[in-house]
Design a protein around this nucleic acid. Structure first.
Lengths: 163, 163
DNA sequence: AGGGTTTCGTTGAATGTTCAACAGTGGTCC
DNA sequence: GGACCACTGTTGAACATTCAACGAAACCCT
């Protein structure tokens, strides 16, 4: 045989350019969105994402584990994040009735108000620095690509991925 | 007039799905690549990126600010990261001859060896969890998109962006 | 030459994230 | 019903990143 299983298939020049653009672009983009949200609404991107998730469900409440899975952060991380948000009054925690172990995070009125104030800022940023910059078709491709990534990585780390 | 400047143009359902897929997918992907590199080579992704940058230039040495700009991290962050890497013997720092303020990071032989060992792992991961998962054309679109993102965000924060 | 400004890289503290260990509850099996 | 195992969410320490402030060197201007 002329090849073996350990032989590396490198990226070609074009793929490498794309990969690096993604790495650097993501760094700059997240940095910028985070900065804007912080300066104008005293909120980080992870915190904002949690507000969004909670605002979308019936009763504006979610089990911690579900919340963690939905943003793909570790349970520990969500515990810390929610603790900070609770201190700021954006969220409160209540025991779960049906499961003695469970805790539900509930969006407060203040949390909802902060979200409503922050959302326009955030969306404007996402448009200005990403969506409005590129072909609709190219952006759709980004969606396909990262849906594929998400699907395989969630499979890999079966459902209770959460980590 | 029926609209004003502050009216928010929300993302449509499709754009929103793409945006969230990108957020979640990026989280999972980076997490996974980082984990693999850590477990197998005791290296984080940011550290790996620095090794790559250094390995590519003449003399395997770079001014700290140039290095920072090339990975789009803050100077402070690169100072800390390089400090850790220096402690591990992957890199060493030398004063810059032409500029008394300057410091150059130099890749050591050990650093080069670690990079050569880690590269196949990393590339395999990038392929397995991203590149090989999707249409070549879609991946090229990702490249175009994030090149656009990078370009506008670098402009915005003129060159000495570095932060 | 000399004062003001800018750039360089570092520092230490504040903030955020990861990691391993844990207590408490639920589920299962006999 | 008790032993065992799995799951939930939290905790505190270790680690990484951000942020503001800084000293030193270079630059600029006259």
């Amino acid at each position: 045989m002329t090849t073996n299983a350990t032989e590396t298939r490198w990226l070609d020049a074009e793929q490498q350019r794309s990969w690096r653009a993604y790495l650097v672009g993501t760094t700059l983009l997240m940095d910028r969105l985070d900065r804007d949200l912080r300066e104008q609404h005293d909120l980080s991107v992870p915190e904002y994402e949690i507000l969004v998730r909670l605002s979308e469900v019936e009763g504006r409440r979610m089990r911690m584990a579900v919340l963690a899975a939905s943003v793909s952060h570790s349970r520990s991380r969500v515990t810390h994040t929610v603790a900070r948000m609770e201190k700021d009054g954006l969220v409160k925690r209540t025991a779960c009735e049906s499961d003695g172990r469970g805790v539900e995070a509930v969006l407060t009125d203040k949390g909802m108000a902060v979200l409503e104030a922050a959302a326009p800022t955030h969306v404007a940023g996402v448009r200005q620095h990403l969506v409005d910059l590129v072909d609709e078709e190219d952006f759709a491709a980004v969606g396909r690509v990262f849906n594929a990534v998400t699907d395989t990585l969630i499979e890999a780390n079966p459902e209770a991925d959460i980590r």
